[in-house]
């Protein structure tokens, strides 16, 4: 169909004239219908459409036969032939059943534009997640920062420590302005320094103005809450047990928290962190101030 326009027009004219003599618009002649230039006003009939339907059915059968051998099922070699066959089917239906071949060019431009956009969207998604596969969880989970309203200290940069590159002990002076009731303005208590520093508690727990971990329950007000966790335990006993033996009790929704926390998560991490008795006492003392 790469004849030059003049020639084509002449041919079309001839065909048109010839056609008018022979046939009603019902029958455009089979090969002309599928491959040739079909004069305006000519549509297929039972013969053309029937033939096309048989052709499409045969393609479907071939597609099925391709994946009958067990060795080919799910193998990569069948992908190309299957895709090619279904693309042929696709365009046959669009061109002839939907008679787009014989329509105003604007119509197929619209359709092809939609189709192309759809393909681009699909392809980009598959490339993004299937080929250039980022691992969003592993990357972002340790870095996620919970949403917070920074009313006064919005200039303060929020730096989240990674679990595997634990932060240097925070400079107490930085923390002091936002430190909660209990921490003196003069400087952080030894417990708080441990909390954000070598004891690594900060990577999992949130304390307003001190730490922003999300894997464990927030510890603001833990001193009051701790007294009600296990009956017969004082706040101090509960907090101490939570640190030295985290699995003894797992806090969760039953305690009025927003979620059930992962049993064993804290103990697994604490197994790699050595805390002396004094460290534990300092931490308990610090947490007991968080009323």
């Amino acid at each position: 169909m790469s004849t030059n326009p003049g020639q084509e027009a002449a041919m079309a004219h001839d065909e048109h004239a010839a056609h008018e003599e022979h046939a009603a618009h019902e029958d455009a002649g089979i090969s002309r219908f599928f491959f040739g230039h079909v004069p305006e006003g000519v549509h297929g009939g039972l013969k053309q459409y029937g033939l096309l339907a048989i052709f499409l059915a045969i393609i479907t059968l071939i597609e099925f036969l391709i994946i009958v051998p067990e060795g080919l099922q799910g193998s990569g070699v069948v992908i190309a032939p299957l895709v090619i066959l279904s693309v042929i089917k696709f365009f046959c239906v669009v061109a002839f059943f939907m008679h787009l071949k014989f329509e105003h060019e604007l119509l197929w431009q619209i359709f092809v534009a939609g189709l192309a956009l759809g393909l681009v969207v699909a392809l980009s998604l598959v490339l993004l997640f299937g080929v250039f596969r980022p691992t969003p969880r592993a990357f972002s989970e340790p870095r996620q920062v919970p949403f917070e309203h920074h009313v006064e200290d919005h200039h303060e940069a929020v730096a989240r420590p990674l679990p595997d590159e634990l932060p240097p002990p925070a400079d107490p002076a930085d923390l002091a302005p936002a430190a909660p009731a209990g921490a003196t303005a003069a400087g952080a208590s030894p417990g708080q320094t441990l909390f954000v520093g070598t004891a690594a508690c900060a990577s999992c727990h949130t304390i307003q103005g001190v730490a922003q971990g999300v894997l464990g329950p927030p510890l603001d007000g833990i001193a009051s809450a701790a007294a009600n966790r296990i009956s017969g335990y004082s706040a101090e006993e509960y907090i101490r047990e939570s640190i030295v033996e985290p699995d003894a009790y797992t806090a969760g929704t039953a305690d009025g928290l927003s979620q059930d926390y992962q049993q064993g998560l804290m103990s697994a991490t604490m197994a790699g962190i050595v805390l002396s008795d004094e460290d534990v006492e300092a931490l308990v003392e610090y947490l007991l101030q968080l009323r």
Binding site: L106, L107, I110, F111, A113, G114, L115, L117, G118, L119, V121, A122, L123, L125, V126, L128, F129, G130
Partner: peptide, 25 residues
């Protein structure tokens, strides 16, 4: 009306394109 149908079908390509892509992903 015919134009409208083709425009709709063009946009429906996007709809199914996204769902198919999600499956493939």
């Amino acid at each position: 009306r015919k134009l409208l149908m083709w425009v709709f079908l063009g946009s429906d390509c996007l709809f199914f394109g996204s769902l198919i892509a999600t499956y493939m992903v």
